[in-house]
């Protein structure tokens, strides 16, 4: 897990205060009895029944972990976070899009090596929260996020591909 104390959390096109979610390590084998925790996938699968009792639950996926095992819990989870160990590892884009296509309505948060120039594609794939790397400019990130207004494909931002929207 990246050190998230140094990052900026961006939601709805602005920086918001870091929230109460506590991210547990990928190797974590236990979790605190109370409080808002984001557990790694393995812990979720091992303690799913217990964790589902909580008021809020959330899971984070590493880049080699497909969202498929979460399918039955998508109505319950408040958030799924997807880690980018390095920005050039693009698997997370497919995970986010797949989560949305499976009907997940909660928050999908990008964590890890999240850079300003990734936000446009990430948001189109269904991410709606971004933990921007702390040494990066929030202004650049927000500018880049909306830098291209025309999209040929359907996406989270746009339910129809351009061929179904074109006006002569």
């Amino acid at each position: 897990m990246p050190d998230d104390t140094q990052s900026f959390l961006i939601k709805n096109d602005r920086v918001v205060d870091a929230d109460a979610w506590l991210f547990l390590d990928k190797e974590a084998s236990s979790y605190p009895p109370t409080g808002a925790v984001v557990v790694p996938l393995s812990l979720w699968l091992d303690h799913r029944v217990d964790l589902l009792q909580r008021e809020q639950c959330a899971v984070w996926l590493d880049s080699e972990q497909e969202p498929e095992p979460l399918r039955q819990d998508l109505d319950t989870l408040s958030m799924v976070a997807i880690n980018f160990p390095v920005f050039s590892d693009g698997r997370g884009y497919s995970y986010a899009r797949r989560l949305r296509q499976l009907g997940f309505l909660g928050e999908v948060r990008a964590i890890g090596d999240v850079l300003p120039d990734q936000l446009h594609y990430m948001s189109r794939c269904g991410f709606d929260a971004f933990e921007l790397r702390g040494d990066k400019s929030v202004e650049s990130a927000l500018a880049q996020k909306s830098s291209i207004s025309v999209t040929y494909q359907a996406g989270q931002d746009q339910p129809k591909p351009l061929f179904a929207r074109r006006q002569p």
Binding site: F87, S88, D89, G90, Y93, S94, R97, H120, Y121, M122, R124, C125, I148, T151, Y152, Q153, G155, P161, L162, F163
Partner: peptide
């Protein structure tokens, strides 16, 4: 061409 241009999911294959 249009489908693949700036396809958000497949820029980091």
């Amino acid at each position: 061409r249009q489908w693949s241009t700036l396809h958000p999911e497949f820029a980091y294959l």
